[in-house]
């Protein structure tokens, strides 16, 4: 990422662009990545509540919010979502951390 020159920065270092964390991609910090299995998901939204970022993608268009996947541009692979995910049946969690190697 190229860094801006001093002359191009806002005075006092204020950030005038709201929600600009979205443009700061942190998805390359991961060693492990959450794998989402929609068939196992009971839509409890625990993962969405606990995610310390905002990386759980939720569809709000229907009657109830639906977890639809992971925002891998911002997910740092902390694993909290997988830890909190209550498996619908033994061994069948909707979120599982797997080693990410490219």
């Amino acid at each position: 990422m190229s860094l801006k020159k001093a002359q191009d920065l806002a005075e006092a270092g204020v950030i005038t662009e709201a929600g600009n964390a979205e443009s700061f991609k942190t998805g390359d910090w991961r060693t492990f990545v959450p794998q989402f299995y929609p068939a196992n998901c009971i839509q409890c939204l625990f993962c969405w509540i606990y995610c310390p970022d905002a990386s759980i993608k939720v569809d709000l268009s229907g009657d109830k919010p639906q977890v639809v996947g992971i925002d891998l541009d911002h997910c740092k692979g902390c694993g909290i979502c997988a830890n909190e995910c209550p498996p619908a049946a033994k061994g069948k969690a909707a979120l599982v951390m797997v080693r990410e190697e490219k």
Binding site: L3, K4, K5, A6, Q7, L9, E11, A12, G13
Partner: peptide, 10 residues
Amino acid sequence: TDYYFEHKWS
């Protein structure tokens, strides 16, 4: 370290 110095410049 990436921007503090530039803000001090201004």
